[in-house]
């Protein structure tokens, strides 16, 4: 699964809560409609990103997992 994206953020190696803090900062910097590709290796990042998008109202277009590497596509919708 792959999506077009406008910005990429690599959070590989970072532990909770840094991927979420950096994602928040990156999405704040996008315009509405733009997509962030975020890569993380924190095993907790899938539930955390899902919770973050649910709480903030941004859209998780999709995610993929390759071994210990997670890739998320987050669309700024507001």
């Amino acid at each position: 699964m792959s999506f077009n994206f406008d910005q990429e953020l690599d959070c590989s190696g970072l532990a909770c809560p840094m991927p979420i803090l950096k994602t928040k900062k990156a999405v704040d910097g996008l315009r509405v409609g733009q997509v962030l590709k975020m890569i993380a290796t924190d095993p907790g990042s899938l539930p955390d990103v899902q919770a973050w998008t649910a709480k903030t109202g941004q859209e998780l277009l999709g995610h993929e997992q390759d071994g210990g590497k997670f890739t998320f596509y987050i669309k700024k919708v507001k």
Partner: peptide, 11 residues
């Protein structure tokens, strides 16, 4: 500090 920063990131 972890919960405060995470909560702030969640608006």
């Amino acid at each position: 500090l972890i919960l405060a920063t995470a909560a702030a990131a969640m608006d």
